[in-house]
Amino acid sequence: MKGQKQQFVTIKGTKDGLTLHLDDQCSFRELVAELTDKLALNHSQGEDSPLLAVRLKIGNRYLTKVQEEELRTIIRSKKHLIVDSIEGNVITKAEALALKQKNEIVSVAKIIRSGQVLKVEGDLLLIGDVNPGGTVIAEGNIFVLGALRGIAHAGYDGNNEAVIAASMMKPSQLRISNIMNRAPDSSQKEVEQNEMECAYIDENETIVIERLQQLIHLRPNLTRLEGGI
């Protein structure tokens, strides 16, 4: 309609509470003024009404800690309203760096000897052996281009989708997330000396060792190349 004022705040009710869509192009002061007015008009709860969770969708706006707290204070000032989450598309440089570290492959060329521990964020690509008594730990996946005879712990922050692969899989212990598997008994089937293997958590929450060729079927989203392998 001609002359209609642009709305900076849109309030939508859901079964879980309220969702507030906040315009990301207007000034912060304009946003605060309209939010205050709309909450005053739309909020009329009785004394016995339950708490309503409020989700803020801020789009491409970056909020400082002070601005974020101001929005929380405005919403808290209304009885029975509590901020559940603030969701936006913008992250800080520190957050972007942390995300990059979690998703990058760290390449290391060395032998991990007894008593040594190598721990990385993201995936680990080790070009070398892990000797008995040596330990490699990664937040993501572990790939060893060499013999894995020591301890390997992938997905240490709770990632059950992480995998461990090695040119020679002879570990003293495997761990993925919080699941642990000791070295397989010598009575179990022998694998050819040159056959690469991978370990993963199956549907029974057990670590299973398979031929490396099965990895693409077990974890089809493992590759980061667009369009897959």
Rank of each mutant, 00 (worst) to 15 (best):
R175I: 09
V9H: 01
A138I: 03
A154S: 07
I127H: 06
E205C: 12
G134I: 01
V90L: 03
S187L: 15
F8H: 05
P171E: 02
Q101K: 08
E47K: 05
N42S: 13
V144M: 04
Q101F: 06
N89F: 04
L71M: 12
A109D: 13
N194S: 14
T92Y: 15
F143P: 02
S85Q: 08
L22R: 00
S167Y: 05
E195I: 06
F8I: 10
N89S: 12
E139G: 09
I207Q: 10
G134C: 07
Q45W: 13
N221L: 10
E69M: 06
D37L: 06
G128K: 03
H21F: 12
P132M: 04
A109C: 09
A166P: 00
Q188P: 10
I216F: 08
L35N: 03
V130A: 01
L124Y: 02
E195T: 05
N178F: 09
L20R: 02
Q101E: 13
D48H: 09
S107M: 15
I75K: 03
L118T: 00
S27L: 06
A152R: 01
A199I: 00
E87R: 10
Q188D: 13
T73Y: 12
N204C: 11
V90E: 00
T206D: 13
K57E: 10
L71T: 04
I151T: 05
K2E: 08
G146Q: 02
D129C: 07
Q214M: 07
D123F: 01
K93G: 13
K12G: 12
Y62M: 08
E121A: 03
I201C: 09
I164G: 01
D123R: 03
R61H: 06
N181D: 08
L174Y: 01
K78R: 11
L125E: 05
A53F: 08
K110D: 14
Q7V: 09
S187A: 14
I164W: 00
K170E: 11
M196D: 09
E69R: 05
I82M: 12
E30A: 12
A96W: 07
G134Y: 00
T223Y: 12
Q4A: 15
D129T: 06
R219C: 14
E104C: 12
L212Y: 12
P220G: 08
L212N: 04
I137C: 14
K15A: 13
V66L: 11
N60Y: 05
H153V: 04
L51Q: 14
A40R: 02
Q193L: 11
E190F: 07
Q25F: 11
P50I: 03
I137D: 07
G227K: 08
D185A: 09
N42V: 10
V208C: 03
G155D: 00
I179R: 07
L63K: 01
R55M: 11
T36E: 15
V163I: 15
E34A: 14
D48K: 14
T36K: 15
E226F: 04
I176R: 02
A166L: 00
A162K: 02
I91F: 15
S44C: 15
R29S: 14
N221W: 07
N42W: 12
I207K: 10
Q173N: 09
C26W: 02
K38W: 04
H153E: 10
Q101H: 08
L118K: 07
Q101C: 07
R29V: 13
T10A: 13
E69F: 02
N221A: 15
V66G: 08
